[in-house]
Structure formats: structure tokens, C-alpha cells
């Protein structure tokens, strides 16, 4: 692993990999609120979201070496691990096992580098950029994207749910994602800063 020196999360991950529990506690303090919010958005208020959070931090503890800083920042790595575990549970609950291997979803990816000694404020800025980018999406595209992201629905399931032709769902997902990507692109390049 080779985090940028100005990446506090990356430095914490190096320590986590060296089995430093204080570093994991620091990661928890920085990100647990955001990750739990995602797990609850997917699974609801019950205890399952907390179980997912526990699994994610155990995963970070045991698989710290699999985090590749060249392919994304730590928060997004944790968000993807959280989403994937929460969606697995959701699909189990629905009685549909998910045909995707989990690992492909966990390829680390990242938004902007929070490369700022006041990392918390950089995180806030990243969130603000993401929020405004999401809000600029047309409603129909955003709906398709959220049904995929938060509910793990196949595109056919989204088509059924929204009474929309499958082809339209595919187009909306593609166009919406490209729009979001283009809007966030200045903040996604390795080494770029939010500020």
C-alpha cells in the first residue's frame, strides 16, 4: 500500500494493516456515521444495519492489505463494502440470492482525495459536491440509479417496479451515470483536491 502522505485515511490503513487497533478506532470515528446511514437506508432501522457495520470494520481489519490506494480512497472502499453486504442481506431477505460475486463490487473506487490536514472539512466538501451533482440529475434517471444502488434491483426489476420499458431503464442508467461521472470527474482524479 502506498497512500499519499497527505491522505490521513491512507495512513490509518497502513497502521490497520500492521494490526494497530487504535487506527481502526480512528477510522471508525471518522466514517461509522456515514456507513451506518447507508446500511440503514438499505436495510431499515433494525439491528441488521449495525451488524453490517460490524462486518465491514472486521473486513477492514482482516483485509486491510486488499485496499489499494491507487484505485480509490478509503471512504469509498468502505462505502462499497457496506453497500455490498447490506444488499446481500436485502436480497436474502427477499429470497433472491444475488448472482454477482461480491468481490467484483468491492473493487476499490474513490471520489476525490480528502487530502487536507482538516480532513473532516474536506469530507464535508466532498459530500457537498456529491449532493449537488446528484440533485442535478433528472428525476427519472436518478430514480433508476437509486433503485439499483440502494435496492440492488436488476434492470428488469427496475423496469417492472417503475412500469417503464427495459430499454428505457438501460438508457436512463447509462445517461444518468455518465452525467454524474462527468460532473464529478474534476474531483475524482487521483491527487486532485476537493478544495
Amino acid at each position: 500500500m502506498s497512500p499519499r502522505p497527505d491522505d490521513p485515511d491512507g495512513a490509518l490503513m497502513v497502521r490497520v494493516e500492521a494490526r494497530d487497533a487504535d487506527a481502526l478506532a480512528a477510522l471508525y470515528d471518522r466514517h461509522a456515521g456515514r456507513l451506518l446511514a447507508l446500511a440503514r437506508r438499505i436495510l431499515g432501522e433494525g439491528g441488521e444495519a449495525e451488524e453490517v457495520l460490524q462486518e465491514v470494520f472486521l473486513f477492514a481489519w482482516r483485509a486491510a492489505a486488499s485496499y489499494d490506494p491507487t484505485r480509490g480512497n478509503v471512504l469509498t472502499w468502505l462505502l462499497i463494502a457496506t453497500r455490498s453486504r447490506a444488499i446481500d442481506r436485502l436480497r436474502t431477505r427477499r429470497g433472491t440470492s444475488r448472482p454477482e460475486a461480491r468481490r467484483l463490487d468491492e473493487m476499490p473506487v474513490e471520489p476525490a482525495a480528502a487530502g487536507d490536514p482538516e480532513a473532516a472539512s474536506a469530507d464535508r466538501q466532498w459530500e457537498a459536491v456529491c449532493r449537488s451533482a446528484v440533485r442535478e440529475l433528472p428525476d427519472d434517471q436518478r430514480t433508476v440509479m437509486e433503485l439499483a444502488y440502494f435496492e440492488g434491483l436488476t434492470q428488469q426489476e427496475i423496469a417492472d417496479r417503475t412500469s417503464t420499458p427495459l430499454g428505457t431503464v438501460k438508457t436512463r442508467a447509462r445517461l444518468g451515470l455518465m452525467k454524474l461521472r462527468d460532473r464529478l470527474r474534476p474531483y475524482m482524479r487521483s491527487g486532485s483536491r476537493v478544495s
Partner: peptide, 11 residues
């Protein structure tokens, strides 16, 4: 890039 961008939905 799409995976990175999709994480914005969580923000």
C-alpha cells in the same frame, strides 16, 4: 469511474 460516481448517491 462509474463506481466512484455511484458512491455519490450515498452522500
Amino acid at each position: 469511474d462509474g463506481r466512484r460516481a455511484a458512491s455519490a448517491l450515498a452522500a
